[in-house]
């Protein structure tokens, strides 16, 4: 996808040339692009005997969509990744609980200030 975003639409053999330094076979690139087409991530048009592949969406839009999906999965607890969140992502707090905790903190702050005074 990075290649298609950077250089625009291209044939499989052009992609193969561009990725020559990564030692990837022509068949691998062909099957990868076919899979991306099946997932509707790239478009293709037939020109002469070869397909020309191009990215269906802009990079920024694609990343926004991916990010949206990732965040949604984190928020709904569907993602089973290991991470350390500042506040537990799937733990819901109620208004009552937050108000009670805020009162506790305010009381402690007041007590500390009285102690200093």
């Amino acid at each position: 996808m990075d290649l298609l975003w950077d250089r625009g639409p291209m044939e499989v053999k052009d992609a193969h040339k561009a990725l020559a330094s990564r030692d990837i076979t022509l068949n691998t690139i062909q099957s990868t692009l076919k899979r991306l087409f099946e997932k509707s991530l790239v478009d293709r048009v037939k020109r002469s005997h070869a397909y020309i592949y191009g990215a269906r969406t802009e990079r920024a839009q694609f990343q926004r969509e991916v990010l949206g999906e990732v965040v949604d999965r984190l928020l709904t607890g569907e993602s089973d990744v290991m991470l350390h969140a500042f506040v537990e992502i799937t733990e819901r707090a109620g208004e009552d609980q937050l108000a009670r905790l805020e009162r506790m903190i305010a009381l402690r702050r007041a007590a500390l200030q009285r102690g200093k005074g």
Binding site: G77, V87, R92, A93, Q97
Partner: peptide
């Protein structure tokens, strides 16, 4: 931050199944 993250009513419905108790908070 927990207050900022309080879900909107629509999101709250989505999150229903994923929520757990606020014991760790």
């Amino acid at each position: 931050i927990k207050r900022m993250a309080l879900p909107s009513p629509s999101l709250s419905a989505t999150l229903g199944a994923a929520s757990i108790s606020g014991a760790s908070l």
